[in-house]
């Protein structure tokens, strides 16, 4: 068995309302440190995680928008965002804080089939 697996982190929840978005970032950074082949998928309310312009001072919670920008320093360059989820929320790729690959649901479904490990948040 190869020690390098394809990990996909599936994000379907909005940030700040629950902790899952932040924890997903923590895990993907650790997985990258283990030299795994990592990608992140954003669909449903998960696309809100990437909406740029988080100002978290008022809720006194540490913002983590900048971490998305740091992902490529950890060789996590594959951020897949579901086109349909963006459109349903009045968003386009220009509203997001990092460059992403916008994909259709069918493409995302295929990508999921190619993974070894899918972790959902």
């Amino acid at each position: 068995m190869s020690d390098i697996k394809k990990f996909m982190f599936v994000n379907r929840k909005a940030p700040y309302g629950t902790i899952y978005a932040l924890e997903s970032l923590e895990v993907v950074l650790i997985a990258a440190a283990f030299d795994q082949n990592c990608s992140m998928a954003f669909l449903d309310d998960g696309v809100y995680q990437l909406k740029k312009g988080h100002q978290t001072k008022g809720i006194e919670v540490k913002g983590f928008e900048k971490t998305y920008g740091a992902l490529e320093d950890y060789d996590i360059e594959k951020l897949y965002v579901d086109q349909e989820s963006l459109a349903a929320r009045g968003l386009t790729a220009e509203d997001l804080c990092v460059p992403v690959e916008v994909v259709s649901r069918a493409e995302l479904g295929k990508l999921m089939e190619e993974q070894d490990v899918l972790l959902s948040f």
């Binding site: 379907r12 669909l43 449903d44 579901d82 349909e84 069918a106 479904g109 999921m112």
Partner: peptide, 12 residues
Amino acid sequence: RNSLDTVLTTAV
């Protein structure tokens, strides 16, 4: 919740 909807429109 829409999780089943999402599966039916996403999954191969």
